[in-house]
Nucleic acid binder design. Structure first.
Length: 479
RNA sequence: GGCGCUAUCGUCUAGGGGACUAGGACGGGGCCCUCUCAAGGCCCAAACACGGGUUCGAAUCCCGUUAGCGCUACCA
């Protein structure tokens, strides 16, 4: 039988990196086993669920390259089945009506807390006589349906943790149907997972304590529970559950920061999963091939953005510029930069020394700007640091460069010429190259200057260098 | 408080009784390359939480302690 897995987010917020990782594991497992990946939106919390959040979650998954074979299904569409299942349990004596109000329950809880004991529902409504229950229902008293939990051991063989067991007596007779006939999470999930014939439930660690309740529900409903695989949580740098105060937690934020989906996916896969050995950078196909539930870590993992950026840098250098064209274009558009010409050579020139698309776009825009002849504050400061020779050396290099015909404007030729000038003047190559770099980019960091000159173009380069040399000839800062 | 889960370098991890003077990666430090910065190559510092067992032998198995985290709703 084909495995069937599901990713089941609630549309009450953005797609969180933890959720994205859970989705990734489900998808990887489905692909690896030839199974089906179902997407189910758990929108039963009407108060907090919005279509906007649903859209963001779908977009985030798509951006990451995580697809689904069925759905999205919306849990809210199955309210009738949930109710029917609850009533079936009630009719079978496996659940009972509870007339306790929220206020009464709160009081009982507070009472239990005062006496230092953990609260557990005392089953007072279970002890009501049949006629009493009927009388209250007839009188219109609101009631919930509670599941009657047997006092027995409930255990399962978790695919990542091994055997986990709970005692029924430590669990509560939990509510499965609210007084407005809407289902509580635990019932809705089990009812849907049965209906959708889910074989493997791969979800966050925080659901471990829900699992015995759900297993009891499966059995009471007459079904065998699926395989459970509880994946570890993702933590912030301080070891606490990852949250807003740790910075970016939504997948969309990383997209905006210029992280590549392939890098994000690779990084997320390695957070709590390892193929064994030293494998780190993996293609989608390799990850699918290597993925197993056994390779999932038991321990929670800290989300390390520094390593994410390193990995993104790896993808940036390895990917052909063509693959980067669209994201760079989007970023340039966001920055309000007009792309006057073919961006491929520009991207090629800078991608190896960039960690994000943002970073690539910034450098591209500097090289793209034909009017950038005046040094900005930073460039000015750098020029000053190079000292009085800045303008003179710039002019020297310029004399050589101006000799070059447009057809000769190639990295090898440029290097040859500049090197010739340097040797004839007894200067080091860097004495001539660095002023050019600063003049053209306003920075001491760039690709090799001969390549930079080609990327910027002969005419623009010469014009800009000439203007900068003139402006600073009376001493740096004189202009 | 109760119940549950977890525990290898700062971080992500390899390891599943002898192959461990514990390997890789990020980050840090150094060197090489070099017109700068990356990339790349080489090197260094850095960990088995603690205590008991089991065993000829334990990072690996068992028990306890400690610590961290999760759950403990008519939320999901």
């Amino acid at each position: 039988m084909k495995p069937r897995v599901r990713f089941a987010p609630s549309p009450t917020g953005y797609l969180h990196v933890g959720g994205a990782r859970t989705a990734l594991f489900n998808w990887l497992f489905a692909r690896h086993t030839g199974g089906i990946h179902v997407l189910r939106i758990e929108d039963t919390d009407r108060e907090r669920s919005t279509p906007e959040h649903t859209r963001i979650i779908l977009d985030g998954l798509t951006w990451l390259g995580i697809s689904w074979d069925e759905g999205p299904y919306f849990q809210g569409d199955y309210a009738v089945r949930h109710q029917t299942d609850a009533e079936r349990l009630l009719a079978a004596g496996k659940a009972y009506r509870c007339f306790c109000t929220r206020e009464e329950l709160d009081a009982q809880r507070a009472q239990a807390e005062r006496s230092g004991l953990g609260f557990r529902y005392d089953r007072r409504c279970y002890r009501l006589s049949q006629s009493e229950v009927e009388a209250r229902v007839r009188s219109g008293t609101l009631s919930t349906i509670r599941f009657l939990l047997q006092d027995e051991e409930i255990a399962w063989d978790d695919a990542v943790h091994g055997r986990i067991s709970f005692q029924g007596r430590d669990l509560d007779d939990f509510v499965i149907l609210r007084s407005d006939n809407s289902s509580i999470y635990n019932l809705a999930v089990v009812s849907d997972d049965i209906d959708m014939r889910i074989t493997h439930v791969i979800r966050g660690d925080d659901h471990i304590s829900n699992t015995p309740k759900q297993i009891a529900l499966y059995r009471a409903l007459g079904y065998e529970p699926p395989v459970f695989a509880h994946v570890p949580m993702i933590l912030g740098p301080d070891g606490k559950k990852l949250s807003k105060r740790h910075g970016a937690t939504a997948v969309g934020e990383y997209q905006e920061q210029g992280i590549l989906p392939a890098a994000m996916r690779n990084f997320l896969a390695l957070l709590g999963w390892s193929p064994g050995g030293d494998r780190e950078i993996m293609s989608e196909a390799e990850m699918v091939d290597l993925f197993t539930l056994e390779g999932i870590q038991k321990k929670a993992a800290v989300f390390d953005t520094t390593k994410l950026e390193w990995m993104n840098g790896q993808y940036l250098t390895a990917l052909p510029a063509d693959d980067l064209l669209e994201p760079v274009r989007r970023q340039l558009a966001r920055m309000g930069v007009a792309e006057a010409r073919d961006l491929i050579p520009l991207i090629d020139a800078v991608k190896a020394r960039s960690r994000t698309i943002l970073h690539v776009a910034e450098q591209v825009s500097v090289r793209l700007d034909p009017s950038r002849s005046r040094l900005d504050a930073k460039g000015e400061a750098l020029a000053q640091k190079l000292g009085a020779s800045f303008s003179g050396n710039l002019s020297l290099a310029l004399e050589g460069l101006e000799q070059l015909e447009p057809a000769e404007w190639k990295p090898d030729r440029i290097l040859e010429v500049v090197r010739g000038v340097a040797e004839s003047r007894n200067l080091k190559l860097g004495d001539l190259m660095q002023p050019i770099r600063v003049a053209l980019t306003g920075s001491t960091v760039s690709e090799p200057v001969n390549e930079l000159l080609v990327v910027v173009g002969r005419d623009t380069s010469i014009r800009r260098l000439r203007e900068t040399a003139q402006r600073t000839s009376g001493g740096v800062g004189a202009a």
